[in-house]
Design a protein around this nucleic acid. Structure first.
Lengths: 206, 206
DNA sequence: AGGATAACAGGACGCTTGTCCCGTTTATCA
DNA sequence: TGATAAACGGGACAAGCGTCCTGTTATCCT
């Protein structure tokens, strides 16, 4: 068992971390610059890998696009929305907390690069039906998480339809993110969070 | 004055309609397939013009992109949102009517290609600051139109902030459009329209 | 009428794109 | 330990990209 790295200067095969490095680079580049605007050459250059390695793990650009959707975008939605929502004491507190989190994170760095799912949705979904299918699936998971949180309320709210409300929340968030990107400011996010707060209070959402 | 078209088979110079034809073709292609995914060759082919004509009117791709934003996207927002809103009897009726209009138009054709402004915003805004500036301006006009409609209410509503509400409406619409595109269904639009109706009723918006 | 210029035709240019191929190195397993 | 396949390096390849260039034709102006 000679897995010693520093033995000699030769290369070491580590397909898993090589693959992860490529997907991470692609995820960042796709979200920041777009899928079409990112070339394969950009990926090898930024990830510091050879053309052979890239072709070995991802024969076509579509392959790495699908992997980014499945392995990164879905997980990002899971981490920033679904998990925090389930952990929150109530739907309202959970949703507002997520908005708060995003706003502070946005203001931390200078620029607003938007919601990963929506960004990739726009220039990947129309390109390929497989992309669209994957994106729609992630939207559905997101939707279910919000609707379930409403349904899990202590006393049932007969004034709000869980599914319709979940759609509204996703729409507000996605739209606010799009506006934030266009204006390069977190203001729309904050405004929409406040409006959503009023709406939920009016409907008795805890 | 020999502007007779059928006189002989030779070509006739008509720079204005030539320019319009190019912008129209570009507008459709950009909204449907995206700015990056549309090539100059696609434009000449679909518009049926020569390379020389295209280069004469639009030396670079950025030129035709800016023209599309200024001459078509801004006008589309004006026609589908601003004008109907001003003509409506009240903000609520106006907004719901616009949603209704969009939904029926969407269901008329098979596919949902989304909101022109948001579609182009996503793959043009990050490419060039000039694009972003133009897009942000259109968002502002849209915003003002909604806020003004709220302010023009017969009796002032002290429960709603016109600017904040306008931001919410745009976000809901943009987000719902994005979801409609991803799911290729007008359902999110209809759901969000209904939710928005409840919200406005609750706040006393006429 | 006749020069001057705008409007257009058609294609060439250099560069980038995504993909693929061959050779070499590393890991696996009988 | 030797054979076999996976992992990777480096670059070639045709096709497509946006741009530009040289002519030819129509229109405008005096």
């Amino acid at each position: 068992m000679k897995t010693d790295a520093a033995r000699h200067g030769g290369r070491r095969n580590d397909p898993q971390s090589m693959r992860n490095k490529l997907i991470d680079t692609a995820y960042t580049a796709f979200v920041r610059n777009g899928y079409h605007a990112t070339s394969m050459h950009d990926l090898k250059h930024e990830a510091g890998v050879s053309g052979g390695a890239l072709a070995h793990h991802f024969p076509t650009k579509k392959d790495i696009g699908l992997s980014v959707l499945r392995d990164r975008v879905a997980r990002t939605v899971e981490e920033t929305w679904i998990a925090p929502l389930q952990a929150a004491s109530g739907a309202r507190h959970g949703i507002l907390g997520i908005f708060e989190e995003i706003v502070t994170e946005l203001e931390g760095r200078g620029s607003v690069m938007g919601c990963p799912l929506n960004n990739l949705s726009h220039d990947m979904a129309r390109q390929d039906p497989d992309f669209r299918e994957e994106i729609e699936l992630t939207f559905q998971h997101w939707h279910e998480a919000i609707a379930n949180k409403i349904r899990a309320a202590r006393e049932p709210l007969d004034e709000v339809d869980p599914d319709a409300f979940a759609t509204l929340v996703i729409a507000v968030y996605s739209g606010a993110m799009a506006m934030a990107r266009a204006s390069q400011s977190a203001a729309p996010l904050r405004v929409c969070s406040d409006q959503l707060d009023r709406i939920m209070r009016g409907w008795g959402v805890v």
